[in-house]
Write a protein that binds this DNA or RNA. Structure first.
Ligand SMILES: [Zn+2]
Ligand SMILES: [Zn+2]
Ligand SMILES: [Zn+2]
Ligand SMILES: [Zn+2]
Lengths: 132, 132
DNA sequence: TCGCACACGTTATAGCATAACGCAATTGAT
DNA sequence: ATCAATTGCGTTATGCTATAACGTGTGCGA
């Protein structure tokens, strides 16, 4: 998918996520954008929906939060699964892709005749810095 | 972890999940147990917390729901990741384990010195029957 | 000019999860 | 036996996450 021009609200939400050092919940984003005129959750969720659709933002299901894609240039997401390591201390997220894992999972799904549409791979724990 | 004797509430919740043909949300479980005296969400969540701790129930992060473990005997969870294929049509869930995927992910995490604690691998799509 | 698609704003509501309090039963030292 | 700690339980209230439903305005092609 080629990313179209972002609207004002989409740009605001995307910028907040890009500047953040950890994933943000929709309501946290809302709070950060009140000064720019945001008033209701839907303004955030609608922007997020589009950003997710364009693939420039990811949703972390296990913590109900959102991050900007770490690999905006490589169009890596069209041909592989995305995985996340999430530090529960500092909140840092490492996004990574592993074709071996992809193929293995895809093979298994194929063997079950299961048609995959969305995937979630999230590992929670402690990053090198916080594992101390 | 060896599973201790379940309490009354834990047993009720576990039985509901065991009989269910698809994952259930905590509030759905609550509704199914009103006749047995359940009144508040916390009664369900507290039972679920224990059942999760004992490993006899899994939480599906991507759909805020819970399922009974499909492999209660094999103590498979202590030495490997658990993955789920979730059909968005019929709700059916297939729980599976793949050591190849485990090792590959674990190796990657090790290379990053990331200490994994919990993992979520969920594939949403359509099962063989529903893919039609 | 009409119709449509789309972004947007607002209010209300639905759905998911936990905090904080108190009580009762159990257990395990002292 | 007694006390303290733990655990399960029930209740009320609250907070967090997400969407429904309605209406407005703008741009654009038929
Ligand atoms: Zn990405
Ligand atoms: Zn960290
Ligand atoms: Zn299991
Ligand atoms: Zn199905």
């Amino acid at each position: 998918m080629t990313t179209p021009m972002l609207t004002k609200n989409q740009t605001l939400v995307f910028d907040v996520l890009t500047r953040a050092e950890a994933p943000l919940s929709a309501y946290t984003i809302l709070d950060k954008l009140r000064d720019q005129g945001f008033r209701a959750p839907l303004q955030v969720y609608r922007a997020l929906d589009k950003l997710l659709e364009y693939g420039v933002v990811h949703r972390l299901e296990s913590i109900n939060s959102f991050v900007a894609c770490a690999h905006p240039d490589e169009n890596c997401h069209s041909h592989g699964l995305v995985a996340f390591a999430i530090c529960e201390s500092c909140g840092q997220v490492i996004e990574f892709h592993d074709h071996e894992v992809d193929h293995r999972l895809m093979d298994w799904l194929k063997s079950q005749k299961f048609k995959a549409e969305k995937s979630t791979i999230e590992i929670r724990g402690h990053c090198a810095k916080c594992a101390a």
